[in-house]
């Protein structure tokens, strides 16, 4: 299979934040940690557009390159995950990430103090799939349940697409053809260099 990808269609995103609260809900992400957020440009002006941003699960992930303890890895499906057992909370990945995905909790609610947390593409972590241990550290593992990320599945306007890169880009391409324009698959150039968008 092709790898997993996210695509946010800025022509459609309405900044309704369903993706953000869906993520909070699914993984009981604590206050102050945002695995996903919606960014708006030209707020209140013509040309206002919103994009929902989280870890893009890059093919050549800069976070992996900089982690001093090598706790971040790529799964077979192209999802970028990390081990909270290894993470030392140094924050290098945060600096390296072009999307600002890594987050660092202040209290030891989610894993232990200071460990990095980020979007898992709803794929849990390296612990046993769907175990209580995995859930506690990384949240739910939807991919193992055969389901896609909840943020995308619940998106109000289907602006946020997730899944197999081919499926996602097909849907997007159909849309662009039907409406005659598109502002491009935002972030794809950086996250998946070489992929057609």
């Amino acid at each position: 299979m092709a790898r997993m990808k996210f695509l946010c269609d800025a022509e459609r995103c309405i900044e309704c934040n369903a993706c953000v609260t869906a993520c909070k809900n699914e993984h009981e992400v604590p206050w102050g940690i945002n695995r996903r957020r919606v960014v708006t440009i030209n707020d209140g002006k013509p040309g206002e557009r919103s994009i929902s941003v989280a870890c893009m699960h890059c093919s050549d992930a800069p976070c992996i390159a900089v982690c001093p303890v090598d706790c971040i890895y790529n799964t077979e499906e192209g999802v970028v995950l990390h081990s909270k057992d290894l993470c030392i909370g140094c924050g290098y990945c945060f600096y390296a990430c072009p999307f600002g995905a890594p987050q660092f909790p202040a209290v030891g609610n989610f894993g232990s103090r200071g460990k990095m947390d980020k979007c898992t593409f709803c794929a849990g972590g390296p612990d046993v799939d769907n175990s209580a241990e995995e859930y506690r550290k990384y949240g739910r593992n939807r991919l193992a349940e055969g389901k896609l990320p909840l943020c995308a599945e619940m998106c109000a306007t289907k602006a946020l697409l997730a899944g197999d890169g081919d499926v996602v880009s097909d849907i997007y391409r159909e849309r662009v053809v039907s409406r005659g324009f598109g502002s491009g698959a935002w972030g794809w150039g950086r996250a998946y260099p070489g992929a057609p968008s």
Partner: peptide
């Protein structure tokens, strides 16, 4: 020092 988040909306220097 490394916890660069502003009230949980860490954007990252490069976002």
């Amino acid at each position: 020092m490394l916890r660069k988040k502003v009230n949980g909306v860490a954007k990252g220097p490069r976002l």
